[in-house]
Design a protein around this nucleic acid. Structure first.
Length: 376
RNA sequence: UCCGGGGUAGCUCAACUGGAAGCAGCGCUCGGCCGUUAACCGAGAGGUUGUGGGUUCGAGUCCCACCCCCGGAG
């Protein structure tokens, strides 16, 4: 890649709107990350791709010297219609009303801007043009994220359309896109094996540099594992595989075990802003909610033995106090811890893989060992 | 001491001329958060309306006394 290599498997922090929320780009680099994910949709609405291009592209704009991958915006447009994306994609009924007008056609997606209500349109060519202007190292093709509640017939037609969009993205990129920019296709198909197979074959046959897996992966973790289980073997082994949006620790271990190279997720940064720290606690879903009053007098660090700045200097009591007060310093500290923890988890996985003992490492992590404990 | 204003949920406050005490904000407790509409969202608990009398079918609302708080005057 033009701006550095990425050791895999890797976790990719989200910089949706051009920043890893709460941290400076220098801090993110110092944590060891080599790739962050920006978003076409958000950056198009504000400040606009032209403004970013005028400032030398997204990397220079946000002061990040390493590589950037940009999501195509398909998922975001989808979220406009469905409101609570997580609820919809996992088959729950969303609590937040969607409401925004979104019309999907063969051409692309017409919608109203959340910022000013203006009419907007995003299609394969627009998405690729914007990603070219952002000058990301890796662009994702424009797709429709199939909802859990879509029936098989809709999912089939949607996936077919996403494939036609894939061709249009590649055509635009070949004609006008930056030669240095890599392209990842996206496998859709919902939870249906035959549709996933068709989509995997379609993407594998296309001249892409990597393949991402998107769309709903089912309601339960077991179903996600099932879908990944029959999808991954269909992908070429010589190109990076990116599982979009998945980031709970047990799922990451499972995904790495199945051969996924890249993961991006809002969890470490969002949970941090909501007062929750990542921790080696399977019973607590690998989270510790520091806003709970139980931590008001807890002098221990978030995770004993964690070498991060936060755990080496601050107590749970202090972080509890900061979180209760919605103090920005608390937000930053928890973000630093969570991203440090996630990177430790992945560097541990890389070492374990190199040593041929990933299954042991993974089992230990899922069983409640910290990354450094699982390594030994 | 006098005049005025005020005591309703843990806090700050709602409740037209007396008619079932509030979808109130904050806080608290619990849930949620997975290609970020998210420093966010949802649910719940919580009141003998300062105290004691009185009028009334009915009083947070009116009357009397007292206790606190705020402002002003002496």
């Amino acid at each position: 890649m033009a701006h550095g290599s990425v050791a895999t498997p890797a976790f990719i922090p989200l910089a949706t709107k051009g920043s890893v929320r709460g941290l400076s780009s220098r801090e993110v680099a110092e944590l060891g990350y080599e790739l962050v994910l920006g978003n076409t949709f958000h950056l198009h609405l504000a400040p606009g791709e032209q403004a970013i291009a005028d400032r030398g592209g997204l990397r220079r704009f946000m002061g990040w010297e390493r590589a950037i991958i940009t999501d195509s915006g398909g998922f975001q447009v989808f979220s406009l219609a469905h409101g609570g994306v997580a609820d919809e994609i996992k088959g729950r009924r969303g609590s937040v009303a969607g409401g925004a007008k979104v019309e999907v056609s063969e051409e692309g997606v017409a919608f109203q801007s959340l910022l000013d209500g203006s009419s907007r349109f995003l299609g394969p060519e627009e998405s690729m043009r914007i990603q070219a202007a952002l000058d990301s190292d890796i662009a994702l093709t424009f797709d429709e994220c199939t909802p859990f509640h879509a029936d098989r017939d809709y999912t089939a037609r949607s996936t077919e359309r996403t494939h036609r969009w894939l061709d249009r993205c590649l055509a635009w990129h070949e004609a006008e896109g930056p030669a240095t920019q890599a392209i990842f296709g996206i496998v859709q198909g919902g939870v249906h094996e035959d549709l996933r197979r068709e989509s995997a074959e379609r993407n594998s046959a296309a001249p892409v540099d990597g393949i991402a897996i998107g769309g709903t992966l089912g309601r339960e973790k077991a179903e996600m594992h099932r879908v990944l289980g029959f999808t991954l073997p269909l992908l070429p082994t010589d190109a990076p595989r990116h599982l979009l949006g998945i980031g709970e620790i047990d799922d990451l271990m499972a995904g790495i075990g199945m051969g996924i190279d890249l993961f991006d997720c809002a969890i470490p940064t969002r949970l941090a802003r909501h007062g929750t720290a990542l921790a080696p606690d399977p019973a607590g879903r690998f989270r510790i909610d520091l806003t709970k009053s139980a931590y008001a007098g807890d002098d221990s660090p978030i995770v004993a033995g964690c070498a991060c700045e936060v755990c080496s200097r601050h107590s749970r009591a202090y972080l509890h106090y900061l979180a209760r007060n919605k103090d920005l310093t608390g937000t930053r500290l928890l973000t630093l811890h969570n991203l440090t923890y996630m990177e430790r988890l992945f560097s541990g996985a890389r070492e374990a893989i190199a040593a041929g003992r990933f299954s042991v490492y993974s089992a230990a992590v899922i069983d409640g060992a910290s990354p450094w404990q699982a390594q030994s």
